[in-house]
Nucleic acid binder design. Sequence first.
DNA 1: TAATAACATATAAAAATAGTAGGAATTGGC
DNA 2: GCCAATTCCTACTATTTTTATATGTTATTA
Lengths: 146, 146
Amino acid sequence: MQISTKTGYAVRALAELARQPAGEPVSITAICRRQNLPPKYIEQLFRKLKHRKLISSKHGARGGYILNRPASQLSLKDIMEAVEDDFSGYCCLGANSHIEYCQGSPCAFYDFWNDIRKHQEEYFSSLKLDQVINYQETENEANISG
Amino acid sequence: MQISTKTGYAVRALAELARQPAGEPVSITAICRRQNLPPKYIEQLFRKLKHRKLISSKHGARGGYILNRPASQLSLKDIMEAVEDDFSGYCCLGANSHIEYCQGSPCAFYDFWNDIRKHQEEYFSSLKLDQVINYQETENEANISG
DNA sequence: TAATAACATATAAAAATAGTAGGAATTGGC
DNA sequence: GCCAATTCCTACTATTTTTATATGTTATTA
């Protein structure tokens, strides 16, 4: 039960996009230089983010990526759903073991896991990308004043 | 971001202990027969649960395991911490990548991830084993009346 | 046309997950 | 005292997921 490196990377990379003046694309090279991330890996994550229409891209020299929405409207859930292949709580219906427990119909534990999934979805939906950026700014101010 | 099969198995197995009249140990064989679980795997999980003192065991014939606390005082967080090796949210300080971002000191994203971790811990602490059992009973009643 | 950068696919290395195998130690019942 | 049941312990294996890397193609701009 941990948020993956993928999500961590994606948040850091997207934060760089959010910082950029609107309309100006940022290249993966630039993002990864600033955030010290593996470019080819980020490329893959960005492809997923693009398929989910969270970002757009511009080809060629001076090209790069831009956010499709203001950071205040981009949730951690959106990012996780795009980048991890399955955001969702545990569900007894999922066949993640060779031993099928509830063979197709909701089992006795279904409601329990389902409520958890719903809670998690709501929680991660409530966390927005701009919050990270605000945290960063606070941090920086503290460093300057300190 | 998913609750693992380990946790799912553990919950099902522990629910069987919770059902048992107090003081009567249940063997892994019995648990796994009732819940259709892989015995050797459950054995390993139970060892971890025992180290965390969530359960006790009785050796030999007619032996087995018993819950150390009432199900109402055993949280999903307790179980996850025992069975998964790291319950905790993502933390930028964790070296889960060869690229170290914040090299030992809290980075700009620290507070963000830290608040998430705290929230998750509180939430999973609030979910108790007896809730699963209550869900089950409701389900069963529904089946009988339906 | 040369440099830049997205796009795409395949491969590889490492880690985590899920499960198995075999045996030693302990207890209860006959 | 013996046998069966059971926990306890260690090691191994197989599979899947994660975290990349490599290589090449296509599009864009200066």
